[in-house]
Each structure stands twice: as C-alpha cells, then as structure tokens.
C-alpha cells in the first residue's frame, strides 16, 4: 500500500469548449483518512470528484490509485480499481428494495462468498440497512437513503469513497449522523474524499482539509488548523467561528 490511496496530480479539466474549471489542482488522500474539499460555489469541488471517478476525463495531469496510474479510464475501470462515487442528492433506486439496491452495488463482483461477506459488513456498519432490507428504498427517509447509498458504494470493497455533498437536503441532526457514518467508514479502513457545502461541519469531521478557489487548492492542511484560522473562517466558512455548527448550512 502506498502512502496515498488517491493522488490527483496537477489536474486540468473542464466541460466541452468552455473555460477550464480545474487549473492545476493537486489533492492527495492518505490511507485511513477523511479529506474534505471546501470552497465557494463554482470552485470546482464536484468536478474534482467527477474527474476522480472517471466521469470526466482530465485534459492534463494524472490520477493515481494506490500507486497505479489510472488516468483516462472510464467509470467502470475506476470502480474496479477501487474508487466508488456516491452521487450528489438522492440516488437510490426508489422502486427497488434496499436489498436490490445494495446488491446492485456488487454487480461487478462475481464471487458469491465475497458478496455475502460484504453484505454482512455493510449491515454491521449501517444497521438501518439490515433492518429495512426488504423495504422499498423510496419509502426510507432521506438520511436512511443516504446510508443505503453508502452501503451500495461499499459493496465493491473500494479503497477510496468519493462523497459528493452527503448532507444535502438533510436536517442538522441527520447530517450529524451522516458525518458520524463517514467517520465509521474511515475507521473501517476506507479513505474518504468528501465534498461539502456545510464546510465547518465537514472540517470538524475530516482529518485533512483543502480549500478550493478558482480551480486550485488555495490552502490545505490538517482540518483543525484550517478551522482555527480566523482569516479562512471569514473568507470561506461564513465567519463567526464560535457559532454552533448544527445551525449552519453554508
């Protein structure tokens, strides 16, 4: 295992002929840690995840997963190399049961014993998934659906999970649960690259924080240090660092 499970080196990427969104961005995710990307709207946070999961091919730069260069590969190859992407918003299959949703996550895994082992693992990590196993996923609450999505993404035994705004549309208390779950994934040995609008809350969870602005990493460092920096607080975290996190949204 190399030191970094995911390295995005000097990435330049954009959509179509439009201007570049990412201009020489470098992000490294160490093993066993949560790395959080924060920054204003339009800084390119979601684009970073799209590049990492192969949905968007970068114009230049390299993507390295656990020491293996995977630049330019498609989503299925990225999935196979150990990167799972949990999309923004609600992405469960609503008309299918929790079981079917989770099993679809293991679609590329042919070994039945392995699948059974992963099912036991995700059910222990997210008890609600086991409790609601036979119910339609669309009938679960937003926070529960998020857990089903997490469980689905973990079925392929990823090395790194890419989370795009997991707290979107959730109340503050459920958001806290979701971040708790992120920590549990990390403690289970899965590195997490997290993108969040709820910046202060996310940095409280993360080990490393990266502040993005204009397609580059503006500043990065241990998350607690970023949180303590008064200037960063004023610029990117909405100021007033003493305010309780649970009442903040942006």
């Amino acid at each position: 295992m190399s030191e970094y499970l995911l390295e995005l080196n000097d990435i330049e990427a954009g959509y179509g002929r439009a201007a570049l969104v990412l201009r020489g961005l470098t992000v490294k995710v160490p093993a066993g840690s949560v790395v959080c990307l924060v920054g204003p709207n339009g800084a390119g946070k979601s684009t970073v995840l799209k590049v990492a999961s192969g949905l968007l091919t970068p114009r230049s730069g390299s993507i390295v997963v656990d020491g293996v260069d995977v630049t330019g590969q498609g989503p299925q190859a990225m999935l196979a190399s150990g990167l799972a992407h949990v999309l923004q918003g609600h992405s469960v299959f609503r008309e299918m049961t929790v079981e079917e949703n989770v099993m679809l996550g293991a679609f590329t895994v042919r070994d039945k014993a392995k699948v059974a082992e992963r099912v036991a693992f995700v059910q222990s990590l997210f008890p609600i998934v086991g409790e609601r196993w036979k119910q339609l996923a669309g009938l679960l609450s937003g926070g529960q659906q998020k857990q089903v999505e997490f469980a689905r993404s973990l079925m392929v035994s990823p090395k790194v999970v890419l989370l795009d705004e997991p707290s979107m549309g959730l109340d503050p208390k459920t958001t806290a649960t979701v971040f708790d779950q992120v920590v549990r994934m990390r403690d289970a040995g899965i590195a997490v690259l997290l993108v969040e609008q709820n910046a202060r809350r996310a940095l409280e969870t993360a080990d490393v924080g990266c502040v993005l602005d204009l397609g580059r990493v503006h500043i990065s460092g241990p998350a607690p240090e970023l949180l303590a920096d008064p200037q960063l607080g004023a610029l990117y975290l909405g100021g007033r660092p003493s305010e309780p996190a649970s009442t903040k949204n942006r």
Partner: peptide, 21 residues
Amino acid sequence: RFGMGLKAIREDEDKAEALGI
C-alpha cells in the same frame, strides 16, 4: 441477476451504467 440489472435500467439507466451494469 440479469433481471435485477434490467430493473435498474428501468429505474435510472445512467446510474445503472455507473454501477457497472
């Protein structure tokens, strides 16, 4: 398993593709 993949297409083809179907 084939049927499960097909039903995922019915629900959302792009998501199904992203899951490797």
